[in-house]
């Protein structure tokens, strides 16, 4: 076999190796860019969404949209604290907030109680009720003693976490 053929085969084999490497990386490209990475511990951790944005998996089990007045809140957002960025769609049922795994919103917050507070709708309004927590629940600056209405956009403090009802 001629010298040239051998050289071509030699380089061709290297090219084949790199072809596999590059095609594997091409396959992974979708995985790299098609995801969003969220680091909860860092402020501003809500990473920019990916370039291609098909329907996120998490959205498939969609919350039933119950008509709730004209502009009632549709989701509960954790704006501060260890779970910063978590969103919970609001249905028509109450939301139990606390550290216990049985809560609707499980807070990773050492300063909240196992069953800390309840956020529930009544009429057109959402109310928050403290469930006898140790550190208390605050709407704005005031501690919640009895079921208190929570207007959309008002911060509710539970332990180190701030929750907010959003539209």
């Amino acid at each position: 076999m001629s010298e040239l053929t051998i050289t071509l085969l030699r380089l061709g084999y290297l090219a084949l190796l790199w072809f596999l490497v590059l095609s594997a990386i091409t396959v992974l490209r979708r995985d790299l860019y098609g995801t969003r990475i969220i680091d909860r511990r860092r402020p501003g951790g809500k990473a920019a969404p990916a370039a291609e944005a098909p329907v996120p998996v998490g959205e498939t089990p969609r919350a039933p949209r119950r008509p709730r007045g004209a502009g009632g809140p549709t989701r509960l957002v954790v704006t501060e604290g260890p779970l910063r960025g978590t969103t919970l769609p609001l249905g028509s049922s109450a939301v139990l907030v606390g550290r216990a795994p049985s809560c609707t919103l499980v807070l990773d917050d050492d300063y909240s109680s196992s069953r800390h507070a309840r956020i529930f709708p009544q009429g057109e309004q959402w109310f928050v009720e403290d469930l006898g927590s140790t550190n208390g629940t605050f709407v704005g600056e005031t501690r919640v003693e009895q079921p208190t209405p929570v207007p959309t956009g008002t911060a509710v403090r539970i332990g180190q976490s701030l929750l907010e009802l959003q539209r």
């Binding site: 969003r36 990475i37 969220i38 909860r40 969404p49 996120p56 998490g58 959205e59 089990p61 969609r62 919350a63 989701r75 260890p82 779970l83 960025g85 978590t86 969103t87 919970l88 769609p89 550290r99 216990a100 795994p101 049985s102 809560c103 609707t104 919103l105 499980v106 990773d108």
Partner: peptide
């Protein structure tokens, strides 16, 4: 795991949370 069953467009909770709970 109960709670945040429909986390829309957000990441899952840190592992340690669930384990601790």
């Amino acid at each position: 795991a109960v709670g945040t069953p429909v986390v829309v467009g957000e990441a899952p909770v840190r592992t340690s949370t669930a384990t601790r709970a």
